[in-house]
Design a protein around this nucleic acid. Structure first.
Length: 677
DNA sequence: TTGCCTCGAGATCA
DNA sequence: CTCGAGGCAA
C-alpha cells in the first residue's frame, strides 16, 4: 500500500466534507452558496487525489456519486423489517371510517393528531446506514426481500452518503420515495427526442427504469431525487415520540423531506389538507398520486400495529382516478386456474392516468348486467387504485344500432365442458377440471410463480407451449423435462433450456408455506398458506387434519376449511404431492414451537363489557399475540374472562363456573408484564 | 394492467 | 441488430 502523506490525507478529508456540504445545500436545501464552477473545481481536485491514492477513497466520498462499473445483476436483499404497503381511501367517508376505526381501537375520547404528506409517485426504497455511512440501498420488492441497488442510489444527490451528525446510530434504515421531478422528466424526454430515441411515458416509469439500470452511470445522468418518509431497522437510536419529529431528525441529518408535510390536530384537518393539495397539485414540481395520513404519535402507532400487509395507523387517500371515453371492441372469455370464466373487454386503446389502456376485466356476469354493457358501446374507463383499469359506465346515447349483447358461453371456450354457476356465487366456472387445458396451464403458471415455487424462466408463453405440445400435463411433469425436449420450442435455445432446467432444480428446495401456496388450493393464498404452515408445521399433520382442526387456524373459516379438507381428501391431489416429493421437492418442517412458548398458549380467553383504555379489537389481538384463543362465550374450558364496564351474563357465568376473571387494570398489568404495552 | 430493462434467440450482414 | 419473453414495480 502506498503511503499517503498526512497533509494530502487531511486535504482529501476536508474536500470530501466540503463537497458533501455544498451538495446538501444545492440538492436538498435548494440554496447553493458557491458557483457551480467552484464546486466542479473542488470535485476535480478530490478526484485527482483519490486516483493518485486510491486508499483515500471512502464510501461517503462525493466522487462515488458519478457511477462505477456496470453490475452483472442485482443481488437480492432481505428486509429485516418488512416494507409494507398502505391501505387506500377513495373518499372523505372512507377516511372518516379510518379515523373511527383508529379511535375505537385506541378507545380515545378526544381527537387524534395526524401527519399529512403528499404521496409521491415514484419507487419506494430502503437505505441502510451503518455508523452514519450509507452502505446499502434496496428496492421494496415483495416487501420481504428486494434488490440491491446501492450503486444506483449512491448517484442520487439528495441522498446523503453520510449522516450529518457526530453521533450517528449504529444502524439506521431510512425509507422513502425515489422519483423524477417533472422538470427532470421533460429534460430527459427532450434529450431522447433529439436523439430519436423512445420517450418515457410518465415520470414514474422513467424513475423506475432509471433505477433498474445495471450501469449506474446512466442512473447518475438522470435527475432523480429522494424524499425520506420513515424509518425501518434502527439500532442505537432513541426514537422521537412522533412521526413529525422523526422527519425533523432526518431533515437535520441531511435528508430531503417533502416541504408540504403538515401535522393536523384532528381528522377534519386531514380533510382540509386534502382539498388544499388537490388545488395546488398541478403546480407541484413532481407528480403525486394522493395523500398519506399517519397517526403522528409513535406510541399509538405501535399499539395499533399491523394487519396482513399494511399498518393500521396509516392510510393513503387517493386522488380521483382520471377517466376517459373509449370503445368496447370485443369481449373475450378467459378461463382461470379454478375454472372461473372471466369476461375481458378489448378496448380501443386510450391514454388514461399515464398509460395506454386496451384491456379491462369485466369480472363476472353480475358486473356485465350491472353496467348493462354491449359490444360496440362507448364506455368510460378509469384506472382504479392506480393500477387496474375499470369500466365505469356506458354512454347510452352513443350506443350504435348494431350493438351486440354479451352472452356468457354455456360451455368452456377451451375444453367445451359445460359451465356451472353455484347458487349464491357470482363466478361462472368451467366444470372440466383437469380435462381443461386452460385450468391446467393456469395451475402450472401458478405453481411456477414467484410467490409459489419461484421457477425462474418458466413464464406464461413457455407453459402454453409445454402443455400444448403435451410435454407437461401436470406440475410433476416439469421435473421430468429433458434438455432435448425443450430445445426446439419457440425462443428456446440451448442456453435458455439449460437455465430453465437449472432453475427447476433450484426450485426443488423450498419452504412449507411456498409449497402449500403452490398447490393452488382454493381460497388458500399467501397469507393463509403461511398460517396453515405455521399452525400444522408439517404436511402430514395438515393432510390428516379434520375440518374442526382447520377452523382453529387464524383466518380460516368454514368455507376455507371445507376447500382445504376437500383438497386433501382427493387421491389425485395426494398422488401429485407424492410424485413431487419423489421428484426431489423438499422443505424443512416448521416447528410450531414458538407458539407453544408463548405465555398464554393453549388457553381460551373471553372478553366482556367495555374497557376504558382499549378497544375490544386491540384487546383481542393482544391476547392472540400472547398465544391465547379468544372465544365469544364462556364455558368450563374457558381459562380466563376479562371484564370491563357493564359486563353482564358472561361475567356471571364465569363466576358460577369458577373461571378466573380479570378487571381492566389487572388485564393491563398482565399485558405490561408481558411487554405488550 | 402497463411500461421499463435485460437477456437470449434468431435474422442479417460482413 | 431486432424482437419478444421474463421479471419487476405501482
Amino acid at each position: 500500500m502506498v503511503d499517503v502523506d498526512p497533509v494530502t490525507r487531511e486535504e482529501a478529508l476536508a474536500l470530501c466534507e466540503e463537497l458533501n456540504r455544498h451538495n446538501h445545500r444545492y440538492y436538498v436545501l435548494d440554496n447553493p452558496t458557491i458557483p457551480d464552477a467552484e464546486y466542479d473545481r473542488l470535485m476535480q481536485r478530490l478526484q485527482r487525489i483519490e486516483s493518485q491514492y486510491p486508499s483515500l477513497k471512502t464510501a461517503d466520498s462525493p466522487t462515488q456519486r458519478v457511477g462505477g462499473e456496470p453490475l452483472a445483476s442485482f443481488k437480492p436483499v432481505a428486509h429485516e423489517v418488512p416494507m409494507l404497503s398502505l391501505d387506500n381511501a377513495f373518499s372523505d367517508d372512507e377516511l372518516l371510517d379510518f379515523n373511527r376505526r383508529v379511535t375505537e381501537w385506541l378507545k380515545l375520547s378526544g381527537s387524534l393528531e395526524y401527519a399529512c404528506e403528499p404521496k409521491l409517485d415514484g419507487v419506494a426504497v430502503s437505505l441502510l446506514y451503518r455508523d452514519g455511512v450509507l452502505i446499502r440501498g434496496a428496492t421494496r420488492g415483495d416487501g420481504a426481500a428486494g434488490e440491491d441497488i446501492t450503486e444506483n442510489v449512491r448517484t442520487i444527490n439528495s441522498i446523503p452518503l453520510k449522516l450529518q451528525t457526530n453521533s450517528p446510530p449504529h444502524l439506521l434504515e431510512v425509507r422513502g420515495e425515489i422519483y423524477l421531478p417533472r422538470a427532470g422528466f421533460e429534460k430527459l424526454n427532450t434529450e431522447a427526442r433529439t436523439l430519436g430515441e423512445k420517450l418515457f411515458v410518465n415520470p414514474r416509469n422513467a424513475a423506475a427504469g432509471s433505477l433498474r439500470q445495471l450501469d449506474s452511470k446512466i442512473t447518475a445522468s438522470r435527475s432523480l431525487e429522494m424524499a425520506a418518509y420513515s424509518l425501518g431497522r434502527i439500532e442505537g437510536l432513541v426514537q422521537p415520540e412522533t412521526h413529525s419529529e422523526t422527519l425533523e431528525l432526518l431533515r437535520r441529518w441531511g435528508f430531503l423531506i417533502n416541504p408540504h408535510v403538515e401535522v393536523t390536530a384532528d381528522i377534519d384537518g386531514c380533510l382540509s389538507y386534502y382539498r388544499k393539495m388537490v388545488d395546488i397539485r398541478d403546480q407541484l414540481p413532481c407528480d403525486i398520486d394522493g395523500i398519506v395520513y399517519k397517526v403522528n404519535n409513535l406510541y399509538l402507532q405501535q399499539r395499533l400495529g399491523f394487519v396482513a400487509r399494511a399498518p393500521r395507523w396509516a392510510i393513503a387517500r387517493k386522488f380521483p382516478a382520471q377517466e376517459e371515453i373509449t370503445l368496447l371492441k370485443e369481449v373475450e372469455f378467459q378461463v382461470g386456474r379454478t375454472g372461473a370464466v372471466t369476461p375481458v373487454a378489448r378496448l380501443e386503446p386510450v391514454f388514461v392516468g399515464g398509460v395506454t389502456v386496451s384491456n379491462a376485466t369485466l369480472h363476472n356476469q353480475d358486473e356485465v348486467a350491472r353496467l348493462g354493457i354491449k359490444v360496440g358501446d362507448t364506455v368510460i374507463v378509469r384506472r382504479a387504485g392506480d393500477v387496474i383499469p375499470q369500466i365505469v359506465s356506458v354512454v347510452l346515447e352513443k350506443r350504435p344500432v348494431n350493438a351486440r349483447d354479451i352472452v356468457f358461453p354455456d360451455h368452456c371456450p377451451i375444453c367445451h365442458s359445460p359451465v356451472e354457476r353455484v347458487e349464491g356465487e357470482v363466478v361462472t366456472r368451467c366444470s372440466g377440471g383437469l380435462i381443461c387445458s386452460a385450468q391446467r396451464k393456469e395451475a402450472i403458471k401458478h405453481y411456477a410463480s414467484r410467490k409459489a415455487m419461484d421457477i425462474e424462466g418458466l413464464g406464461d408463453k413457455l407453459v402454453e407451449q409445454l402443455v400444448d405440445q403435451e410435454l407437461v400435463h401436470s406440475v410433476e411433469d416439469l421435473y421430468r423435462l429433458q434438455i432435448e425436449q425443450l430445445e426446439g420450442l419457440e425462443r428456446m435455445g440451448k442456453k435458455s433450456a439449460q437455465n430453465l432446467l437449472a432453475s427447476l432444480d433450484t426450485s426443488k428446495e423450498t419452504t412449507f408455506p411456498h409449497f402449500l401456496y403452490a398447490l393452488g388450493i382454493r381460497e388458500v393464498g399467501e397469507a393463509t398458506a403461511r398460517s396453515l404452515a405455521q399452525h400444522f408445521g408439517s404436511l402430514a399433520l395438515l393432510c390428516s387434519s379434520t375440518r374442526e382442526d382447520l377452523l382453529e387456524v387464524t383466518d380460516v373459516g368454514p368455507i376455507v376449511a371445507h376447500f382445504i379438507h376437500e383438497f386433501f381428501q382427493q387421491t389425485d391431489n395426494l398422488d401429485v404431492i407424492k410424485r413431487l416429493k419423489e421428484a426431489g421437492v423438499h422443505w424443512p418442517d416448521i416447528m410450531p414451537q414458538d407458539r407453544q412458548l408463548l405465555p398464554l398458549s393453549g388457553q381460551t380467553w373471553v372478553l366482556t363489557g367495555a374497557m376504558d383504555t382499549m378497544g375490544r379489537a386491540e384487546a383481542k389481538e393482544r391476547l392472540q399475540q400472547l398465544g391465547a384463543k379468544v372465544a365469544g362465550s364462556v364455558s368450563a374450558k374457558t381459562s380466563c374472562v376479562v371484564f370491563g364496564a357493564d359486563a353482564g351474563s358472561k361475567l356471571k357465568k364465569a363466576k358460577k363456573l369458577g373461571v378466573s376473571v380479570l378487571n381492566e387494570a389487572e388485564f393491563l398489568a398482565m399485558l405490561t408484564a408481558n411487554g405488550l404495552l
